[in-house]
Design a protein around this nucleic acid. Structure first.
Lengths: 151, 151
DNA sequence: TGACATTAACTGCCTAGGCAGTAATATTCG
DNA sequence: CGAATATTACTGCCTAGGCAGTTAATGTCA
């Protein structure tokens, strides 16, 4: 297989045209939009992600969430603490494995969680306005390849 | 012009397959890679961006940098303070407009700044391994369209 | 000119992530 | 079994961004 020449060279590189710059700005724009949508509900974009993961049973403890988001458990402990203080999440020591603290939504957390998918869909579709199905799939596959390249 | 149907619906949405998730992870991967490369030089990825912007004369004061990165001047004041403490940056009140504080690299800052483009190019090319020129251009144009959609 | 608005830098207070270290519990393996 | 290892949650300390408010300097305009 013949390797394509690398896209960037030291001479041609300018930060404001780079893929890194664009990715960072798109990410910031998505987070800011979620923050705006969630502000009336008193929840940040970072908290949004945690609630959605717990609601969809993709994570049931701090370690799960940290793995899911590639952050560390220390940061996650503090995020969970904020959500507990807001009355959205409840902690309970697991009797089977006393190291872990199981997480579950409170009633008020469940009510809020039901609104989250609609917000995610609205923000994503806004940013993807005018994208064909093929472009949408292509974008995802290019991003996945970048992640795979990182190892 | 006929509108394409929106890519996401509330029923089909799952966070770990979403473009938002992918963009966030790619951005984290790029930043982590720059952090790893710069760690021996004692500079973070966030500081990397500031030094590069000053070195390439894209910004000469805190307000410029804040605009460039869509952050606020308060955050920028503190970033600059860290770089001054590291001896990489110097501040000097502008005599023409006494509100602004001009920024310039120290000699040690200049030496370090010369190494930055190579790091950026290395990290980006790693993540873009196997991309054709067409795919590279396509990725950038899709990301730009997402930004434009955000308004 | 003088009132008003704008801009630049800065500060305080909050959320948030990275890293190192700790204590308790669980698992693995000699 | 029992010692070494791994995992979970947590803490402290740092960097970093968002927002509101302050002060000084500048710009605008009646």
């Amino acid at each position: 297989m013949v390797a394509a020449p690398p896209p960037y060279s030291v001479e041609s590189y300018t930060p404001d045209e780079s893929v890194g710059y664009l990715v960072a700005r798109v990410r910031a724009s998505l987070f800011a939009a979620v923050d705006r949508e969630m502000a009336p509900l008193g929840v940040s974009a970072a908290q949004f992600v945690i609630l959605l993961n717990v609601a969809q049973a993709r994570a049931s403890c701090a370690a799960d969430l940290a793995r899911e988001q590639s952050t560390d458990t220390g940061s996650m402990t503090r995020m969970i603490e904020r959500l507990v203080r807001k009355g959205l999440l409840r902690r309970a020591r697991d009797p089977k494995d006393r190291r872990v603290v199981r997480l579950e939504l409170t009633e008020s957390g469940r009510r809020l969680a039901r609104k989250l998918p609609a917000v995610a869909v609205k923000v994503l579709n806004q940013h993807l306005r005018g994208f064909s199905d093929a472009e949408f799939d292509l974008l995802k596959s290019l991003l996945r390849r970048m992640l795979a390249n990182a190892g």
